[in-house]
């Protein structure tokens, strides 16, 4: 594996996350925020795969998160399966849902995908509410989702450290998959489709197939972390399908930099902590986030990572000027 800026930044982030508990492990609130940041980081990175790298406006991503959460929640409460299997089940269920939604949606183009997936996203909530007889818990939510067990040790809310490192492992796995995917043949053809579809197709890339595979992978990663989330917060309800999370994930992607791996991870941490700091502002907080989102798009369309890419910091690896010269579009496009 060639060492480059992306790997160095990602490794740096992961190491910082890994050592942070040395300072904060007694402050359970900060630990909680860090865990939530990691959860959002995975969801945002997976979404960015489609949105940023693929240019596919899949707006149903939060729905996959909910599907993963409900899959493990329902299975571990009603069928009594182990939460570890639940993680897998969440990923598989979401991946399958991704394929099911992708089949009709991805045959469509551009804006139609956004419309269809947004419509789908809006339908999941009502479906959970009306499906109360199937054990979804309805409007009130699903409760209590059992915690993970390791031998005789049961994960509990008093000790966040095991949760923290489990989440870090999941984050690392997802970031590794994402990195590998972006630089694989599949990822490259996926990005080529975004930049010039006719050209990519003339090279023999099957638009539908590669879009479907990437959608399934992104959905599975989102489902996996959704399943973790369900066990971590114990209660899940259709409220998670509200607008807040949907918009927050988008802000994280924009803030960190769309198609600027690992930008969305940085975005997730910054926005989660910023959100917490602005909590005293109450409803003005979301107003401010809306304004921030518009301002970022207008002034800094490539986000923080776009800014970092412009500066030549030796620590972050050599700037890939050769690639930029060969393809002047690199810094401009997503």
């Amino acid at each position: 594996m060639k060492i480059n800026r992306e790997i160095l930044t990602t490794a740096g982030i992961l190491i910082i996350i890994a050592v942070t508990p040395l300072i904060f492990h007694e402050n359970s609130y900060t630990m909680h925020l860090l865990i939530m940041s990691m959860i959002w980081a995975v969801a945002a990175t997976a979404w960015d795969l489609l949105l940023g790298y693929g240019g596919i406006f899949n707006l149903a991503q939060v729905g996959f998160f909910a599907i993963g959460a409900y899959a493990t929640g329902m299975a571990s409460i009603h069928l009594g399966i182990s939460p570890w299997m639940g993680l897998l089940l969440g990923a598989v269920a979401s991946g399958l849902a991704g394929v099911l939604i992708g089949l009709p949606c991805l045959r469509l183009k551009g804006i139609y995908v956004a419309l269809m997936t947004l419509a789908f996203f809006e339908v999941i909530g009502p479906l959970i509410v009306v499906g109360i007889n199937l054990g979804t818990g309805g409007k009130a939510g699903l409760f209590p989702i059992p915690p993970f067990r390791l031998g005789s040790y049961v994960f509990n809310t008093d000790e966040l450290l095991p949760w923290y490192y489990l989440c870090l492992i999941l984050l690392a796995i997802c970031l590794f998959i994402t990195y590998k995917l972006i630089h694989s043949m599949l990822g490259l053809s996926f990005t080529a489709l975004r930049d010039s579809e006719p050209f990519a197709q003339s090279l023999g890339i099957n638009r539908f197939k590669s879009a479907l595979v990437v959608t399934a992978i992104a959905a599975a990663m989102t489902g996996l972390i959704g399943a973790f989330y369900a066990h971590y917060v114990v209660v899940i309800s259709p409220r998670m399908l509200g607008l807040d999370m949907f918009l927050f994930l988008l802000i994280m992607i924009i803030f960190g930099g769309a198609a600027r791996f690992p930008g969305p991870v940085i975005g997730a941490f910054v926005i989660t902590f910023l959100d917490d700091m602005l909590r005293p502002l109450d409803s003005y907080r979301l107003l401010a986030f809306g304004a921030l989102m518009v301002i970022m798009i207008m002034l800094l369309p490539n986000g923080l990572m776009g800014l970092v890419a412009k500066i030549n910091i030796p620590l972050f690896g050599k700037r890939d000027t050769e690639a930029e010269m060969l393809n002047p579009d690199i810094p401009k496009t997503y």
Binding site: A114, I251, A258, L287, I297
Partner: peptide, 26 residues
Amino acid sequence: KRDNFDFNVLLAGLGVALFLDYAAQA
């Protein structure tokens, strides 16, 4: 005037919606 008009305008629209909705709430 910029690249990726579709993508940017979609997200900017969401930002404006967030702003307007919570301005209404405030």
